[in-house]
Design a protein around this nucleic acid. Sequence first.
RNA 1: GCGAGUGUAGCUCAGGGGUAGAGCAUCACCUUGCCAAGGUGAGGGUCGUGGGUUCAAAUCCCAUCACUCGCUCCA
Length: 511
Amino acid sequence: MTNYEEVFKKIVAHAKEYGFIFQSSELYDGLGAVYDYGPNGVELKNNIRNYWWKSMINMNDNIVGLDSAIFMHPTTWKASGHIDAFNDPLIDNKDSKKRYRADILIEEYMAKIEAKIEKEVKKATKRFGDSFDEEQFVSTNPRVVGYKEKCSSIIKRFARAMSDNDLADVKALIEELGIVCPVSGTKNWTDVRQFNLMFKTQMGSTADGATDLYLRPETAQGIFVNFLNVQKTARMKLPFGIAQTGKAFRNEIVARQFIFRMREFEQMEMQFFVRPGEEMKWYEYWKELRMKWHQSLGMGEDNYRFHDHETLAHYANAAADIEFKFPFGFKELEGIHSRTDFDLKAHQEFSGKKIQYFDPEINESYVPYVVETSIGLDRMFLTVLSHSFREEGLENGESRALLKIPPFLAPLKAAVLPLTKKDGMPKKAREIMRSLQTDFNCQYEEKDSIGKRYRRQDAIGTPFCITVDHQTLDNNTVTLRDRDSMKQERVAVEKLHSIIFEKVNIAKYLS
RNA sequence: GCGAGUGUAGCUCAGGGGUAGAGCAUCACCUUGCCAAGGUGAGGGUCGUGGGUUCAAAUCCCAUCACUCGCUCCA
């Protein structure tokens, strides 16, 4: 087993042992690629979401929040293109074990025929020189005409098979064309199967009166259909953004790598509406700003990089990912997409209602262009968890498991610990606890030796341990232990609040 | 979906036809008191599930389920 697999396994085990992440429905042997957040996990997740919300909405005058429903009118997904784009016919080669999209295999086959036509044309150009009439040649040359007829019959047959949902004929077509697997070179294919990435459900309790609905595969559409509502009621002027966080659902064929790729996941998205023609400027602006946001966490600038997309999604004219170095390599964490006016225009067409903005500066109405920033909250959680996890060797030869979470994101800010259960220390510790817990998430613990309690707090990333000892009862001071250095200093009880606040204050991260 | 691997206590694992084990963890009490201490005791498993072979199955056989890793896609 390679080292990173080892480390990743440890992180997953640690996440369970300390109440961060449980597998969904574990009692019933689990549900694939669905996870629950435990007591510490939900705190960390909330803190990350809160940090994002503050930096995107509260710190930007021209971005407002929204919380749209998971269920949306079924036409939404026709307009957005998801019904077509999220529906792929797939086929496997049994020898190479590779999986292909059947439509792409057929396209590639036809590309080869096109190449043959081109070759014929080139040959003929050479032969006839200046007197060559290409148009006439391709419409009369028997070989070229044969190729063309073959192509159009393939297209027709494939289109008919897809619209009739006749997947057996798609397979038959692939077999008749003699398409082989590029890897194994064999024709040993499985049946073609249709994969729809959207979850389907019904609204209405009786079978005959029910409407088919989808669970949203992205939160963005809730923003687009509310564009006018928000723009008008919040009196927003372009350029401005609408942001929201929420669950999205994808019926992944292969959902793996812990919470990296889940079937139910949470997105944090912002759609920024701009004047047409200015989208590339804003695309670059948000690319840079979002990268800065990630790096502000201090988890290592080298652990982030951009990945510019070469092939674009159906809605985009430019797209880049911010990738993070997870234990299993650099993987996408956030996407920044220039979505053009694709979505708003589509909703305009499908709804038959005008979705436009009157721009007083240029005295013109238009459909705005959109630049999107879309980050997976669960993936963000995994970056924090996997980066902060470490096992440290100690001077006495033992080791401690430590989560070096940025303090303002830590599930608990402080643990209040009476050194012993005697001499009124628990009572004093509870008093201190009460004075802090309205502002900071704190935990009181008196079980086990003090060393053991320190280690437990290290393991969940608590920045401070406050220990009440005999001296506390004499002069109202406690020892304050720092998570990372393990150093302790004696401080007055009344200073605790300001010391903790200084350390966990979110303000210095929001620039 | 295909291929490979793994399923025994909360965790890590041993046991491979004859009444279910260890360490750690949990709980109670005693002792101790600044970096995973010691003692005594307790709770917790129909060995993933179903079937077969056998006098007898956690163990052998078949099926099935779940998870992990690889292949496609994405936040």
